[in-house]
């Protein structure tokens, strides 16, 4: 009975909602492991990211491309072997599908090496370089691109790929941090729990996921009492703080739309109050803060009750 009720609720959410115009596309590349443990880990991270892209980034199946070390091991049999040609083809194909304002997320996982534009991640056959990726990404000037170089020695991907409307994350600050990187593992994990969403607004920004992965990676070293040998970097933290992996979903139910608008207005009042904090007597500020927060909480409850997603 309970399960049927929940299914009905989910259905109503889906039918009452319309996706925003912005679409997210994902290219996931998992490179050569070199050793079984890395091959297994990279493959698991690639598979997890594919699921995340579909479910959390709301990317269409056809907009999620996974290029793997061993495509035959993909249970869905949809991955492609991650050769340089295949990667080039994937970007070409994607460039023909994207629309203006869309978001393209590229995640590159593996063992890196090289410097500058010659930085590379080991793939089957000839390794594509950061310079190659720069060329392939030139076809996405009207999209927001998030490029995650989750590999050792990947620091120079940032300098090679950064540009307008583009966020580049790299697991290491320089190409000289060559030890095994743990960044990719925590980057993926950031989407698998609610902890990465530090402001608890239900929307994960690129900066939040970067900060989570960086923090959790550092903890691994700290717990093991090892020197931190990878320092992740982000090319544009201002843009990264604004960009979310999936566009907001708006409801088609006018009651929910109205409630969301009312809550938005309250949030704006709260924002205005916070700006005046230093000028108000503390007791007055706190009373008003509580009044607004209670009102916002009540609106959230009302949105839920009306079948909306707060």
């Amino acid at each position: 009975m309970m399960r049927r009720g929940l299914a009905a609720l989910l259905l109503s959410v889906v039918t009452a909602s319309v996706l925003s115009a912005q679409r997210t596309h994902a290219v996931i590349i998992t490179g050569l492991g070199g050793e079984p443990q890395y091959s297994t880990a990279f493959a698991a991270q690639g598979a997890a990211l594919r699921t995340i892209a579909r479910t959390q980034w709301r990317a269409a199946d056809s907009s999620v491309i996974w290029l793997a070390e061993d495509a035959a091991k993909d249970p869905e049999q949809r991955a492609m072997r991650a050769t340089k040609d295949a990667v080039a083809q994937a970007f070409l194909r994607l460039s023909q599908r994207v629309g203006p304002g869309d978001m393209v997320v590229v995640v590159l996982i593996g063992h890196g090496s090289g410097e500058g534009a010659g930085s590379r991640v080991n793939l089957p056959g000839v390794d594509p370089t950061a310079g190659d990726f720069a060329a392939w990404l030139s076809g996405f000037a009207r999209q927001t691109v998030v490029f995650v170089a989750a590999a050792s020695a990947s620091g120079d991907f940032v300098t090679t790929l950064k540009g307008p409307n583009r966020i580049v994350l790299a697991a290491t600050r320089t190409p000289f941090e060559r030890n095994e990187s743990r960044f990719s593992e925590h980057f993926v994990r950031g989407f698998q729990n609610a902890e990465a969403d530090t402001d608890k607004d239900g929307r994960l920004t690129v900066l939040e996921s970067f900060a989570y992965a960086t923090r959790e990676t550092a903890k691994v070293y700290e717990t093991a009492r090892q020197m931190l040998t990878e320092h992740a970097v982000v090319s544009d933290s201002v843009l990264a703080a604004r960009v979310v992996y999936a566009a907001a979903v708006s409801s088609g139910d006018p009651r929910v739309v109205a409630l969301v608008a009312e809550r938005k207005a309250l949030e704006e009042q709260l924002e205005a109050l916070r700006k005046r904090k230093e000028t108000l007597p503390p007791a007055e500020y706190e009373a008003e803060l509580e009044r607004l927060l209670l009102a916002i909480a009540e609106k959230t409850a009302a949105i839920r009750a009306a079948g909306g997603t707060p």
């Binding site: 239900g202 949030e267 803060l289 509580e290 009540e298 409850a301 707060p310």
Partner: peptide, 23 residues
């Protein structure tokens, strides 16, 4: 408890778990 939850929501006003606790 009230002080703590107000502090949380001041930073993250849409944090539903904290909203429920405030209620």
């Amino acid at each position: 408890a009230r002080r703590e939850v107000l502090g949380i929501l001041e930073q993250a006003p849409t944090f539903e778990k904290a909203q429920l606790l405030l209620l």
